[in-house]
Simulated assay, not measured.
Amino acid sequence: MAGRIARWGAVLGLGALWWWAVARLVLAPGAGVLEGTVAAGGWGLSLLPVHCVPEARAEGTLGAGRWRRAWRVWLRG
């Protein structure tokens, strides 16, 4: 339970920090490198593939060695 609370606290705190940086970049004429770095870093984290599964468990993946076998068949013609 404590881990879940700490995780949500970190998520909400970092989310608030990101929104503060974006708001300062848009609204404050004196916003600088710190705000830009925080905003760009948060946006970059959103590009991480957090919904990935291991290749062995993913649907539609090819088994180990399948490409090698297909290449050999193609080379034999």
Results as ranks from 00 to 15, higher is better:
residue 5 I to N: 06
residue 7 R to A: 15
residue 7 R to E: 14
residue 9 G to W: 10
residue 10 A to C: 05
residue 10 A to W: 09
residue 11 V to Q: 10
residue 13 G to M: 11
residue 13 G to W: 12
residue 14 L to G: 00
residue 14 L to D: 03
residue 14 L to A: 04
residue 15 G to K: 00
residue 20 W to I: 00
residue 20 W to F: 04
residue 20 W to K: 00
residue 21 A to N: 01
residue 21 A to T: 01
residue 22 V to S: 03
residue 22 V to K: 02
residue 22 V to R: 05
residue 23 A to D: 07
residue 24 R to T: 02
residue 26 V to T: 11
residue 27 L to D: 01
residue 28 A to P: 00
residue 29 P to F: 07
residue 29 P to Y: 05
residue 32 G to V: 04
residue 33 V to C: 06
residue 34 L to F: 15
residue 34 L to M: 13
residue 35 E to S: 05
residue 37 T to A: 15
residue 38 V to E: 00
residue 41 G to S: 15
residue 41 G to C: 13
residue 43 W to K: 00
residue 44 G to Y: 09
residue 46 S to P: 00
residue 46 S to Q: 03
residue 48 L to Q: 11
residue 48 L to A: 15
residue 49 P to M: 09
residue 50 V to M: 06
residue 50 V to W: 10
residue 51 H to N: 04
residue 52 C to A: 13
residue 52 C to W: 12
residue 53 V to H: 06
residue 54 P to I: 00
residue 55 E to T: 06
residue 55 E to A: 12
residue 56 A to N: 01
residue 57 R to N: 08
residue 60 G to L: 02
residue 61 T to N: 08
residue 63 G to I: 00
residue 63 G to F: 03
residue 64 A to K: 13
residue 66 R to W: 14
residue 66 R to N: 02
residue 67 W to F: 15
residue 68 R to S: 13
residue 69 R to L: 10
residue 69 R to Y: 03
residue 69 R to C: 04
residue 71 W to I: 02
residue 72 R to N: 01
residue 72 R to L: 11
residue 73 V to R: 15
residue 73 V to M: 09
residue 74 W to I: 04
residue 75 L to E: 08
residue 75 L to S: 03
residue 76 R to H: 12
residue 76 R to T: 07
residue 76 R to N: 11
residue 77 G to D: 04
